[in-house]
């Protein structure tokens, strides 16, 4: 599992350790790191370097009463406001006080009229428009992150499992520059992770497609299409595959964009 011809760049591993990668890279690199002992070891070393870097920073004194406040919470089942909640509350308080100060500066003849407006703004404007608008703006991101967190947890559980089938896909005689794919597959739940290296770009209008070939001789099951990046790397994580399909082997074909329901010969690379 660690004889990859391809390894992640130093800078990518550093960004991985820092947690500053974009989502698409994160998924792809996670799949690779999970299967590559070399990159996992290098990543661990960078994490060590960063942890030590953080630990040697000049210490700051705790705020007065921090210890007492912490100990008081040990047996308090009710959670105190989170950092996010405090920020929301503080934001609303700030907006309210700012509006109030502006109102007090208003010339006297307009006070009554502007007062009514200020009240309306306070209750409707800030609560309903500003605060709720902020929450609405954040909701898609929160939903997206919840979905991704769930997916990563599922991926982690799968990669830690020991009952998955492991296959290497190659084209003919393997050399360091030959395309190579790795499949981790669990027939019980139909979970599959595929990574590939040294893949040339597909012909124009074409894409690669991965197939699971059932052991019972049934029709090949499509397991997702992929297009390698500029370095020739690609990954497929958890494509839709029915559970309880024992696989005899796996293959990759070149198909029209969008993929196919049946593989088009020749098989580009295969393994079992």
């Amino acid at each position: 599992m660690s004889n990859h011809a391809f390894h992640l760049e130093e800078d990518d591993l550093i960004q991985y350790a820092l947690g500053t990668l974009k989502d698409t890279q994160l998924t792809q690199f996670t799949a690779h790191i999970s299967l590559c002992n070399v990159c996992r070891g290098r990543l661990a070393q960078y994490r060590t370097d960063l942890a030590v870097f953080g630990a040697v920073q000049p210490p700051s004194s705790l705020p007065d009463g921090a210890r007492e406040r912490f100990l008081a919470r040990l047996n308090n089942p009710a959670p105190s406001p989170s950092a996010l909640e405090k920020i929301r509350t503080r934001s609303r308080a700030y907006l309210f006080s700012k509006a109030f100060r502006h109102w007090m500066d208003t010339p006297a003849p307009l006070l009554i009229l502007s007062g009514a407006l200020a009240i309306a703004l306070t209750f409707v404007g800030y609560d309903d428009l500003s605060h709720i608008h902020q929450l609405r703006q954040m909701q898609p991101e929160i939903n997206r992150f919840e979905r991704e967190s769930s997916k990563f947890q599922e991926l982690e559980d799968f990669l830690r499992g020991t009952n998955a089938q492991d296959a290497t896909l190659r084209r003919g005689i393997n050399t360091n520059k030959e395309p190579e794919g790795h499949v981790l597959y669990s027939a019980v739940n139909g979970r599959l992770v595929f990574t590939a290296t040294n893949m040339p770009g597909p012909p124009p209008g074409k894409t690669y497609e991965l197939w699971v070939l059932p052991a019972n001789g049934g029709n090949p099951i499509p397991a997702g299409t992929f297009t390698p990046d500029l370095q020739g790397s690609a990954a497929i994580v958890f494509p839709e595959i029915p559970a309880n399909v024992q696989a005899s082997s796996f293959g990759v074909t070149v198909e029209d964009q969008g993929g196919s329901n049946t593989p088009t010969l020749p098989i580009y690379m295969s393994g079992q």
Binding site: G54, A55, Q57, P58, P59, S60, S61, L62, P63, A66, R67, R69, F70, S82, A83, K86, I87
Partner: peptide, 20 residues
């Protein structure tokens, strides 16, 4: 607590949030 708070404070730059 000093280590944890110091790092959080360096990131957040707000003592209240860092204590949180």
């Amino acid at each position: 607590s000093g280590l944890v708070y110091s790092i959080a404070l360096r990131v957040l730059r707000e003592p209240e949030l860092a204590e949180d």
